[in-house]
Design a protein around this nucleic acid. Structure first.
Length: 596
RNA sequence: CGGGGCGUGGUGCAGGGGUAGCACGCCACUUUUGGGAAGUGGAGGUCGCAGGUUCGAAUCCUGCCGCCCCGACCA
């Protein structure tokens, strides 16, 4: 591709306040925004995305995946059958066709896969199977963010495993677990697998693959000693030993204008963890149901984790309760507790059940109580793990301490089980002719997010520096100046490279060298090849890695040297892939059972 | 949806009652050519939309729309 022919240009400036990766993708001319969370890909972005597609296809095919393609528009009926029509919020875009039939834009494809399976699979001989597609999803997110990190329309590689039983599912799960590490590594992304919430997918075990980054939106919990890794939404630190001191009688204590944990802690000279904090939420369990007040109880030094509360209450919608809603229940903001409240669902963190004689609100302005004992004083409270795991808490699996990190989710894997099969009637006949449900798994990777993570990981002050596996072109060819012999040599070398199938972006513009070098650095191709009066005087052609030192090769050997250098770049990536996969194999056998 | 901010040539911004400006980019010519060149000349904007106030609105008021950032959602 000649720069003089290319659609799209580089920009000198980008809006302030955006993520660096987003600014660079914008400035380098990879993407352009159309609306909130909706982007076009320019040639460079489209080519990078194609590279990502290739990696995904290769790795999915390698584990036996078969590529299919499913529709973007679904009849509402299949979403009704799975129950998600009512369970999913406005993220699922619904509309009606001209006949007034309910339709939806695909936000994921479990329903369609299960429907396909119902008719395509009928015997145990038809299993196991893995199908996948690389296709557009639309999710009307409440808030898009960070350029390609979080968009409303995005392209996802979504794979689905179909198995006879749990054992088969476990095997498919392990295959994807390994493939996801390979995919991330080939894209130059260091990732960690963490246990995750199953969310709207339902099912049992799930992992997220996280690119660790301070700009990430997820909080992750790691144990450096044993390798425990979980999203903060599901991380469960080790519970403390139950306290054994005798339960003392409740005792009211005056605490004027002490409405926060910090106030009460100071006033009564007790540690925040000795306070049972009560937080009121408004919970709606189904789209056609009324909301209700739920009181969440956690230790005073911790926060209610909304994902955990959502799971504990089977909530569809969850938001902090308003002052009116609290007052209607008899609660007193600032002095809340389950004491004396009628008809309010109370969910308490299990830690509180193990502590004795805590302080909590008296539901009376200006008063708290001492010697609150959860199991005695709020006997109908449901117990769950509600508090967000915090830095330094004890690991559930070993004596180590947990650490917090931030990450961006680039992919996830779910063990779905048989929920969708049952809903769509996806069954098969086993050897004895018995009808059984197909066991499903679901495995997603966001392509745009992958590119954004790669840009976040691979850049410097001059611009992008993408790995050769993702860069839109392998080579940026720069012709410096307008001298005849320079142009002739550059044109010839360009033609040679093209003839040899080397992907090259040739800057043949008639502008100053500074602009060309700056643009080459900004666009981030891994190898720069320069032909100039100086390089010709020095013997031929200059080669320079995006982040390396230049060297000169003769014009005759230029093509060979370029191919060798590109080979080296690919080989280095391959070597790091092998290096990274060793611990992954140990991780798989340690956490998922036998490798297969 | 709650909170904050911003909508002015292609991009990034300034202006803040008297009819629109800067830098970069773009076009033409000349001179330049190893790190975002110089000169000369030029093109390009219903100032997000609608209504109102005013002799006069990009500017003030009201409403709406859009976009960004922080929170509840997720690839």
């Amino acid at each position: 591709m000649r720069v003089t022919q290319m659609f799209g240009t580089t920009l000198r400036s980008a809006p302030e306040g955006e993520l660096v990766s987003h600014q660079l993708l914008l400035r380098a001319g990879y993407i352009q925004q159309l609306a909130a969370g909706i982007f076009s890909l320019l040639p460079l972005g489209a080519r990078s995305m194609e590279k990502i597609r290739t990696i995904l296809r290769q790795e999915m095919d390698a584990i036996g995946g078969q590529e299919i393609s499913m529709p973007v528009v679904h009849p509402g009926e299949i979403w009704r059958r799975s129950g998600r029509w009512d369970k999913v919020d406005a993220t699922l875009v619904r509309f009606q066709d001209r006949r007034g039939r309910d339709m939806a834009l695909a936000m994921t494809h479990e329903e369609v896969v299960a429907d396909l399976t119902a008719s395509q699979v009928s015997s145990y001989r038809d299993l196991p199977r893995i199908v996948y597609q690389i296709q557009t999803k639309f999710r009307d997110e409440p808030r898009s963010r960070g350029g390609l990190i979080r968009t409303r329309e995005f392209v996802m590689k979504d794979a689905y495993s179909l198995d006879r039983d749990e054992e088969g599912l476990g095997r498919a799960y392990r295959l994807h677990f390994r493939a996801y590490f390979r995919i991330a590594s080939r894209a130059g992304l260091p990732v960690a697998a963490v246990l995750s919430d199953v969310g709207m997918m339902g099912g049992r075990m799930a992992h997220e693959f996280m690119y660790l980054s301070d700009v990430g939106e997820d909080t992750l919990i790691f144990c450096a000693d044993c390798g425990y890794a979980a999203n903060q939404e599901v991380a469960e630190p080790r519970l403390p030993e139950p306290e054994t001191e005798p339960e003392l009688p409740l005792e009211e204590v005056e605490t004027p204008s002490a409405t926060t944990v910090a106030d009460v802690s100071r006033l009564l000279e007790i540690a925040p963890e000795r306070i049972s904090k009560s937080v009121a939420y408004w919970v709606q369990r189904a789209r056609d149901q009324e909301g209700e007040l739920v009181l969440a109880l956690v230790p005073g030094n911790s926060e209610v984790n909304l994902a955990k509360l959502r799971n504990a209450t089977s909530a569809l919608e969850l938001r902090p309760a308003t002052a009116e809603e609290i007052a209607a229940s008899g609660g007193v903001p600032g002095y809340m507790s389950p004491l004396g409240l009628q008809g309010v669902t109370v969910v308490a963190d299990e830690v509180l059940a193990r502590r004795r004689n805590l302080v909590t609100g008296a539901n009376r302005p200006g008063w708290h109580v001492r010697n609150f004992n959860l199991l005695r004083d709020a006997a109908d409270a449901r117990l769950a793990r509600l508090a967000s795991a915090q830095d330094g808490e004890p690991c559930p699996n070993c004596p180590g301490k947990l650490q917090l990190r931030r990450g961006i989710e680039f992919g996830n894997i779910f063990q779905l089980g048989t929920d969708y099969s049952r809903a769509m009637g996806a069954t098969y006949a086993d050897e004895e002719g018995r009808e059984r449900l197909v066991v499903m798994g679901s495995y997603g990777i966001g392509l745009g997010r992958m590119l954004a993570c790669a840009a976040e990981e691979h850049h410097d002050e001059r611009g992008l520096a993408l790995p050769i596996s993702l860069a839109p072109f392998a080579v940026a060819l720069v012709a410096v100046g307008g001298r005849e012999d320079v142009r002739a040599a550059a044109d010839a070398l360009y033609e040679e490279m093209v003839a040899f199938g080397i992907e090259v972006l040739y800057d043949d513009r008639d502008i100053s060298p500074g602009v060309k070098f700056a643009d080459a650095d900004l666009r981030g191709m891994p190898l720069r090849v320069t032909i100039s009066p100086r390089s010709l005087d020095a013997g031929g052609v200059e080669l320079k890695r995006r982040s390396g030192e230049p060297f000169v090769v003769t014009r005759e050997h230029a093509l060979g040297a370029i191919r060798e250098e590109l080979g080296l770049l690919a080989a280095e990536l391959e070597a790091s892939l092998r290096h990274r996969m060793e611990p992954v194999e140990q991780l798989i056998s340690a956490t998922l059972g036998d490798p297969s």
